[in-house]
């Protein structure tokens, strides 16, 4: 039993990953077929995983309602909305008329607006954060302003502005981001390798 609880997940992780890595580098037709099958399985299991978040949220909000906390009414709003979407989504599928209405007039506006509020934050962030506290901050600010100058009105009165912005974008920005890309990719490779070899297993969940 101990093997099933703690060793098996590591064996499964490594086995699945090994087949995919091996067929990527070496031409072994049988492994290629197996890898394609594994990837298809991944897509299916990942679809189940989309619903995993429900457990925690229902528990959290149900707890608040049953303890009659002052925020219970909001928790009820979350659970009722979730129930409506789930019921309609499963009953008439995501292609149904009612579901599409829910999607277009509830989910779509709240999701879009929730991101649109960042418009305000970026305004105040620009106002507050771009103060020339040191030379790094100065470089950051100048580069941001040069990029902002490329749009519309400035190109009329300051025809050189879009050209400067294009230069800042094509040369130093792309060069700087390339180093960030390389650095990030190395971390990704390192993390993936540690997960595959079972040196890291936080994702498997703690406890027995």
């Amino acid at each position: 039993m101990q093997f099933v609880k703690s060793k098996l997940p590591v064996v499964v992780t490594f086995g699945a990953a090994f087949i995919i890595v091996a067929q990527y580098y070496f031409n072994i037709p049988a492994w290629k077929t197996l890898a394609a099958e594994f990837l298809r399985w991944n897509v299916i299991i990942a679809a189940f995983a989309l619903a995993l978040g429900i457990g925690g949220i229902v528990k959290l909000h149900w707890g608040r309602i049953s303890r009659r906390q002052p925020t219970a009414v909001y928790s009820a709003a979350t659970l009722i909305t979730l129930a409506i979407f789930l019921f309609v989504g499963l009953y008439e599928t995501t292609r149904g008329k009612t579901y599409t209405w829910l999607y277009d007039f509830i989910y779509n506006p709240v999701a879009a607006t929730s991101y649109a509020t960042t418009f305000f934050f970026i305004t105040s962030a620009a106002y507050r954060a771009f103060r020339i506290k040191n030379s790094y901050a100065a470089v950051l600010m100048i580069s941001a302003i040069l990029m902002m100058l490329q749009v519309g009105v400035f190109s009329v009165y300051l025809p050189v502005a879009p050209k400067i912005a294009a230069w800042v974008w094509n040369i130093p920005t792309t060069a700087g981001m390339r180093a960030v890309t390389i650095g990030a990719a190395l971390s990704v490779v390192g993390n993936a390798f540690r997960v595959i070899t079972g040196l890291e297993r936080g994702h498997l969940g703690g406890g027995e």
Binding site: R40, V43, G53, I84, F85, G89, L90, Y107, V110, S114
Partner: peptide, 26 residues
């Protein structure tokens, strides 16, 4: 606060419905 909580419910509902649909289709 009310709208924010509706968002949480709707977003999860959309995720789960899509997951279900995908499992069915694929």
């Amino acid at each position: 606060r009310l709208v924010e909580h509706i968002y949480v419910g709707a977003a999860l509902g959309v995720l789960a419905s899509q997951g279900y649909q995908s499992v069915m289709d694929i």
